[in-house]
Write a protein that binds this DNA or RNA. Sequence first.
DNA 1: ACCTGAACACCGTTCAAGT
DNA 2: ACCTGAACACCGTTCAAGT
Lengths: 223, 223
Amino acid sequence: MVCVATRKQRAERRADALSKDRIVEVAIEILDTEGESALTFRALTARLDTGAGAIYWHVANKSELLAAATDDVLGSAMARVRGDGDPRRTIRAIALGVFDAIDAHPWVGAQLSREPWQPAMLPVLEGIGTQLAALGASERAQFDSASALLSYLLGLAGQYAAAARLPRDTDRSAFLAAVATQWEQLDSARYPFVHRFATRLRGHDDREQFLAGVDLILAGIAG
Amino acid sequence: MVCVATRKQRAERRADALSKDRIVEVAIEILDTEGESALTFRALTARLDTGAGAIYWHVANKSELLAAATDDVLGSAMARVRGDGDPRRTIRAIALGVFDAIDAHPWVGAQLSREPWQPAMLPVLEGIGTQLAALGASERAQFDSASALLSYLLGLAGQYAAAARLPRDTDRSAFLAAVATQWEQLDSARYPFVHRFATRLRGHDDREQFLAGVDLILAGIAG
DNA sequence: ACCTGAACACCGTTCAAGT
DNA sequence: ACCTGAACACCGTTCAAGT
């Protein structure tokens, strides 16, 4: 404890200026280390050593803060994606970029599935669409395929976010194993497929599984 | 006002018994008429003329309540689906059943995207899987395709839920039009595809668009 | 066994007041 | 212009106490 004097009057103004970037940065830190539910304005003010009003001066509300954080993470993930001239491979690379970002930051998945039409998705959509056009797909097919791929990505996003909302010691594969166990106890006469699905769920590789879905959609595209 | 006498002592026990079914029923009413955000325990207690504890006697928590409500709506939607012997057509019918349920009750979309692995999804998964098997797809292809279709459905669910969370006077098509307008104002050199996408977004038919995505995935299935 | 309703432990957000 | 921090208007959930 450095400041000794009894502080009866209000604290003086902070020296290092606050900024939206700084706030977003700390928000990402909290989200990554302690999870979605730990990001509260109280946690932020404590970490930033300030008051709630100071944060609201830089950021309109929590939704904007989460959107900015998501834009940050997803934006830099998209910036890392390199096309290699092959449209299908590039689409896979974009999809994997989103996948890996969500895998590393499950709260991004929550935010995307809560607010799908946010700025962070623009580079993703643009990237996918450009490749679909390069593939020679018709305007209509470009629209349909881009929509389908987007929905697929968002669906996956939600699943990751859901797994991340569980108690912190259970990771995703442990969670899936628990789901599998539960499903295996269902009446197998009524749910034969779910039974088989559960068994496969146990051993599956998330990333591989995800790519298989992307390929399935890509395979359906004429052209 | 019927009861005139000054009520100083606590109200006597209610005559008509409470039950989980009754609670779920009222919850669905609130969700349908006033939206997701209107479902609070305070609203429920007011509508059921009881205390919070009474609800907790029948239902573990809000998450269970929402799961039960979702199970109800989706369950009866699935019960209405009739197969006609053609696997692909039946899968489309199942998917449309989910779509229509979400369209009519957007909060179902929110719940599904928040908790994808809930009981309500079992009949959906089982139905899809059964048809994929009938289609002669390999075990692996059944697993991949069912997963992809599920993720696609969940992605769509999230999008509907997001649109429903907006101020109540804006319906989904008005919302999409607003998104389109916003995207059309983007730098068209940087986002050429998003521009074209926005234009199509305006005139598109949700249901048709949804089916196009299902067909795209189905088309990719070998067999 | 079932219900009552006050109380608890949180939230996001606002705002008068300070520098 | 930027920040402080108490206060407001909510939540879901708990629990001692009633019938």
